[in-house]
Structure formats: structure tokens, C-alpha cells
Design a protein around this nucleic acid. Structure first.
Lengths: 400, 400
DNA sequence: GGCACTTGCTAATACGTATTAGTTGGGAGC
DNA sequence: GCTCCCAACTAATACGTATTAGCAAGTGCC
């Protein structure tokens, strides 16, 4: 049962036969290697002519096989990139990666399949008794995304990989490092037992600058609403908050650092409470990747019970996705997502080109977006302290 | 000058040595071919264990070279997918492809590199005198996107490919067919010398239905504004327009088919001219992929000099991208982009699974979006004919 | 004529995998 | 003891290219 005489592409050998030279000569002519200067002009012409006539196209697979590299960059995200509600968050990264990869002549491999139910069947039938994760990496469950499935690392199909995502599996990252697989994380990520390469936004500086600006405007009691997860970006923002306060000579009040479990919880009533109870004059909010915060802000601003910034200044520690023109221009800083992604690609390619896989860690500054939601402390509240917890060092911190 | 001990990926041979079997056995175990049933359970276990320990991953290039499969689907677009102004057009396709590929356990290969300036340098230094396109496929220029670059077809590292885009290079498509490379086009595309597979929206029926609806509302003079390019989608819409008219018993007036070179040319003055001069009561507009039409419509509707549908009905032959909530809900039909893309992936996988690469051509229906921009013919204009070109068969067709 | 050197080419090999045609060892059947 | 067969494996090869070592012929020089 031979394949039904499938139409075969012409190869260098075919050209060689037709021209009466060797395959090696054809290769030299076509790919113009170092020794190609030694080919007689007449021969070169003949070979090129034959190639043209026979419609020769080089086989990329063969070339890659020979070179050991596939000119493929992977893009792996720990969360799905494509659900509609997060598109605006991930899209700029995607764009940046794609663009830079294209510029560098690499193609992009989107790891979509990993972490699907189908994974079990990936490498053909497997005995039910066989261990699914013999690779020392534990915790591989079906529905969740993970790099190591069926015990093997599919990322390796690519020459290297750009990683993205908030809910990282640390153990997989360190496994990658142990394997010496070249990758770059977009965003600062740390794992216990290894150093890894990343390109990160400078949340510390950006948050610090925002606090400084508020302090300059006279604010002394600035509430910081942090995200629930204890990830690096959140920690960096907190760090920036503390540094900003310190540089402004403000003694931090732990009661003014609160965790916002769900952005939808951010209501006008809460803000009124905080103003009255805690005596705050400004609010820093850490945005989420989906559009819940944007919605909460919009409805909150819609009530007009508290005017920003007339009654209270408000700034965002990053830019929320789903930005539509009619949304108000909140004061915030903005991370250069596309540039970060492009930079990550460049770093990755450097890693690939150089033999030493020493980790590289880059930090890029965020852009300050002035917006219109911060202003000076309202005149009637200058110097006013809240009724409760008057002392800055008060630790009677009510649970949110 | 040996390569400085580059960290090599482990191969089947490495596993074979470690396990004490032959490379062939390893291959049989790993890729689970026909003869794999004949492998002893103990051997299989040992091989798999070694593979896991050594972090083995199959080499894509080698598999492709051999004709094997990599569970990789390519996505090639003739225009760049990622420019911001077209994002809303391509995004749903991307989403659909990604989702279905993931569901089927395939990863996605985005061909970004092809057609960049860097291409010339892709495979190392090249003699200035060397021909850039020895491949018989002519017209390969640097800045433009093209499949065959440097004489090779890079798509081949994927098992098959989904193609997308309006400005297609026909000669490349037929080259692909000649090579017998499996691919599916999203959208109907025809080339002279070959049949190809596609999943297309039924523009003919959708446009016809829209015309029928207008006819039902009493419209007799319906202007059709077609796009400049003479691509299949445009031709199909025209076909649908004519069929719709025919079925409604309306004699087509060639003066009512006009080409709109630039959507920005669509102004309220024009519409007034058409209403007065041509006596039209309804307008069918073919949308573009960017947001120019959307803008033109918005500004036009903003003037309120012509009320839609009170003075004139207006419907769109497809959905324009960049849909924001505050935009009005134009009557139109909507193509199920994500579903089309998903269907294309399924068709492609069928092609891959079956050896026969007979082309498959699927058509999917569009969704009718009632909207609010069509209505009955204004009472004072029922039966009214324009001052000039009264006869339907008038051919005094002024150039737009 | 012999040596060194250049020019223009080829033979051979490697890349990593899949597949086919064997080969081996041993047990069943007579 | 012989054949026959089967399970379990391996050797060999092909895929298409890039590269290196080397070969043959030619040229210049002593």
C-alpha cells in the first residue's frame, strides 16, 4: 500500500541530476555558504536556472534539522490569553512579542494545547498504570494549565520561550531552569531555588512617584488597596508605596493598607466610610486584569456622591484593560506592555545566541499618566484627622 | 572549531544508549507506531522512564522532514494580524482558531517572520549577486508578506495551515496546492488552476436575504455600495444583491451599483444626492476591515440631515469591526468569525487525518442582525421616481 | 620534472526521526 | 530433532540539507 504517487517536491538532488553536478554544489549555490565563492559562474548560472525551471523550494525542516534550531519562539501563558474579558490585558503583550519576533525573523508558537483534557492522549495510547508525572514535577492536574504534561515539556519544541501570566507555577519555573531551557518571563518572577530571566515593569518606582505626587499635593493619609494575590507585582507596589511615604516623610499607617478581594467590592459607600472613618484624602487602587475594576469605578463615579478629585483623590497603580473613550481619564501609571514584550523577545534571542544561559533581569520604567482624578487636599480637610485611630502608629486595624 | 559544547537536547539515541535498546525501539515506544504493540511492557516502561528523566522532546524539524506529524497547526495571514486598527477584524478569527486548536490538542504556529525585511538574512550571509527567488514563484518582494521566501516554504514545519486575508497572492496558493500541502482558507478563495479548501461565509444568501427584507418593506430602488477590490467576498455580495432583486421581481438598475473607493467618501451630501438624483430609498454598504467606515457612518448619522430609517433605510453587508456600545445598531448581517475559524481548523484536521487531500469547501450562514436602521419606504416617496434616469434600464451611469 | 598553490568541484557525513525488512531466541507441535 | 511460528527486538535506510575534507586538474615557479 504505497502512498498514491504523491507529488514530490523537487530537491537539490533533482537539480543536481539535471545539471550534472553534485548535490553539494547545488547546496553551495543555493544557500551561498562560505565556500560558494569557489563555484564557477557558469555552474552557478546553470544550477540557478535549473532550480527556477523545476520550481525548487528549500525544505525548511531539513534546514532546521541541520542547524539544530527551528527559528521558533514559544509563547506560553499561565492563563488563557484569549477569553474575551482579558483580551485587552494580554493583547498588547501578544502584539509586542509578535512584532519583535517577526523583526528578528522568528515565528511564534502559541502553546494553546497544553493543559487541555486531550493532553493525556498526546503521545499516543498510554497505559493507564503508567505514571503521568514521573518528571519530579508534581501537581499536574487535567483542567489547569501547566507546562509539564504527561511528564514532558512541550515548550522544547521552540528554541526558547516567552512566559506570561500572573498565576505562575513556581515549581514548573524552577524545573525549566534546571533543564536549562532558555526562557524569559514578562514581569518579575522569583523562585526559591533559581534565578531566572525577566523583563519587568518598575512598579516600585512608579508607585513611589505616584505617592510622591500625592504628597506634593498635600496628601498625608493615602489608602492603598492592594490585590488579593501575593504576587511580585503586588509586593512591588506595596514596596513603592512604603518608599514613597518614607521619602515624603510620612509615617506609614498599617491601617491604610487594605486588601481588595474583589474589585466589585469597591463601592461608593466604602469610600465614604474610609474618608470619614480613616480620614483619608487619597486612594491608590491596584487594577485587575479583567474589567471588573473598570466597571466598579465607572458605577462609583456615576453616583457623584463623592467627587474625584474634589472630595478625594484617586489614582490607579497601573492601567486597567478595557479602556473605552467614554471612560474617565483616571490618574495612573501605565506599563509599556508592547515594549516589555518586545524587549523580552530580544533578551530571549540573546540568550539563544550566546551559549551561557546566565539569567538576565531587566526593569523598564512605567509611564505616568496625569489624568484628572488627583488634586490638592480639599481645603476644609487640611490637617483634619479622623475620629478613630488618630495616631499614625495605631494598629487597631479593622479587617476589610 | 567545534561548537563550544552546546547543551544538546537529548535525542532518541541518547535514550536508547541509556536504556540499552536501539533507537528504533525508542521511536516505536515514543511515537506509538503500528508496530508498537510488539514492544514488551517492561521495555516500554524503561524507555518512557528514561525519556522523562532526560527531558526528551521530539525534534519538530526531524519529524517534519520524515513526514511525521508535530501536532502543530500553522496560521498564516496575508496581512499583518496585529496592527491596532484591524485588531477587531482579525481577533475573532484568531480566537476561533486558537480555541479549536486547543480543543483538538494542537498548538498554534503564527507565521510572523515570513515577509519581513530580515528574510534576506534569514539563513546567514548571502552573496549580493545571488538570486533571491530561485523558486519559480515570482513577485517576491521584500516588504510584502509572502509564503515563499528565500525559495522555501516555511509553512511546512506545521502539519497544516489555516490561511487568512484579503489580499491573497494567488500564485502562492496554487503553488501550495501543487506541493500538496494541506491548508484551509477562511473565506472563499479561487485560483485559476486548482481547487482549494475553504470555509466561507455565505455572503450571497445573506445579502440576498437583506435585499428581500428591504423589498418586503416596499423598497424598489436600493443602492449597493461595493468595495473597491474585486475579491470573492465582494463578488459574492454583488451576486446576492442581484439574486435578491431578481427574486423580488425587481429589474436591476446598473446605476445603483457603485464602487466606494474609500469609506471616508461616504458623506451625508452624497446620500442626499443619491436620494434626490437616483431616487433611492435604501442603501446597502459593504464594510471594510478597518474602522474607517464605522467613523464615516458615525459622523454621517451625527448630522441628522438624513434620518435612518425615516428618510432612507441603511444596512451593512457584514459587521464592521470596532464595535463600541455607543455606536448605533445598524441593520446588518454578521459573519460568525470565530465559528468559521473553528470550522476551518476542524476541516484542516480532517484533511490531515485522511490521506486524500481532496479539497473541501464549506459555506456557513451569516446571522441577520435586525438593528434599527431599516424601515418601510417613507410614505411621501412611495412610487416616486427620480427626475433623471427614470427608466430602470437607464445606463447613463454617472461616475462616482 | 617536481613542488606549492589555486580553482572548482565531489564524496561523505551528520542532523533526528519513522519505518521496513530482517534477525534472534525460544516454545509449540509433530 | 525438526520445522514453524511468534514475540521482541535491531539494522538499515530514507527524508533534504549544510559542511568539511579531499581530489583532480591546472598554473606558476624553481
Amino acid at each position: 500500500m504505497a502512498p498514491p504517487e504523491r507529488r514530490r517536491r523537487s530537491t537539490q538532488r533533482d537539480i543536481a541530476q539535471r545539471t550534472g553536478v553534485s548535490q553539494a554544489t547545488v547546496s553551495l549555490v543555493i544557500s551561498g555558504g562560505a565556500a560558494s565563492t569557489q563555484i564557477a559562474e557558469s555552474t552557478r548560472r546553470a544550477v540557478l536556472a535549473a532550480a527556477d525551471e523545476m520550481g525548487y523550494t528549500a525544505n525548511v525542516a531539513a534546514r532546521s534539522l541541520k542547524g539544530g534550531r527551528n527559528r521558533l519562539l514559544g509563547l506560553y501563558t499561565f492563563e488563557s490569553v484569549f477569553p474575551t474579558d482579558q483580551r485587552d490585558f494580554y493583547y498588547p503583550f501578544l502584539l509586542g512579542v509578535e512584532e519583535e519576533a517577526a523583526r528578528q525573523g522568528y515565528d511564534l508558537l502559541l502553546f494553546s494545547s497544553t493543559g487541555t483534557d486531550r493532553d493525556a492522549a498526546r503521545f499516543g495510547p498510554r497505559e493507564p498504570g503508567a505514571a503521568d508525572t514521573p518528571a519530579g514535577v508534581s501537581g499536574t492536574q487535567a483542567a489547569e494549565r501547566s507546562i509539564y504534561v504527561g511528564g514532558s515539556n512541550r515548550l522544547k519544541i521552540a528554541d526558547g520561550c516567552v512566559l506570561l501570566g500572573r498565576n505562575v507555577r513556581r515549581e514548573e519555573l524552577s524545573a525549566l531552569v534546571r533543564e536549562d531551557f532558555p526562557f524569559v518571563f514578562v514581569g518579575r518572577r522569583e523562585v526559591d531555588d533559581a534565578e531566572l530571566s525577566y523583563v519587568a515593569a518598575d512598579y516600585v518606582a512608579a508607585t513611589g512617584a505616584l505617592v510622591a505626587e500625592l504628597a506634593r499635593l498635600g496628601h498625608r493619609r493615602i489608602l492603598y488597596l492592594r490585590a488579593l494575590e501575593d504576587s511580585e507585582p503586588t509586593r512591588d507596589r506595596e514596596e513603592g508605596y512604603r518608599r514613597g511615604l518614607a521619602e515624603a516623610g510620612i509615617v506609614p499607617d498599617e491601617a491604610l493598607i487594605r486588601t481588595l478581594a474583589d474589585p466589585a467590592d469597591l463601592s461608593i459607600e466604602r469610600v465614604e466610610e474610609w474618608i470619614g472613618g480613616l480620614g483619608i484624602t487619597a486612594l491608590l487602587v491596584e487594577p485587575t486584569e479583567d474589567d471588573r475594576l473598570t466597571e466598579a469605578l465607572a458605577t462609583m463615579a456615576g453616583t457623584r456622591r463623592v467627587r474625584f478629585p474634589a472630595d478625594c483623590s484617586l489614582a490607579l497603580l497601573g492601567d486597567p484593560p478595557c479602556w473605552t473613550p467614554e471612560l474617565r481619564d483616571w490618574t495612573r501609571f501605565s506599563l509599556p506592555r508592547a515594549q516589555m514584550a518586545g524587549q523580552a523577545v530580544r533578551v530571549l534571542i540573546e540568550l539563544l545566541d550566546q551559549e551561557s544561559h546566565e539569567p538576565r533581569q531587566l526593569t523598564v520604567p512605567c509611564a505616568y499618566v496625569p489624568g484628572d482624578s488627583i488634586g490638592p487636599v480639599p481645603a476644609h480637610r487640611v490637617g483634619v484627622r479622623p475620629g478613630v485611630g488618630t495616631e499614625p502608629e495605631s494598629d487597631g486595624r479593622p479587617v476589610t
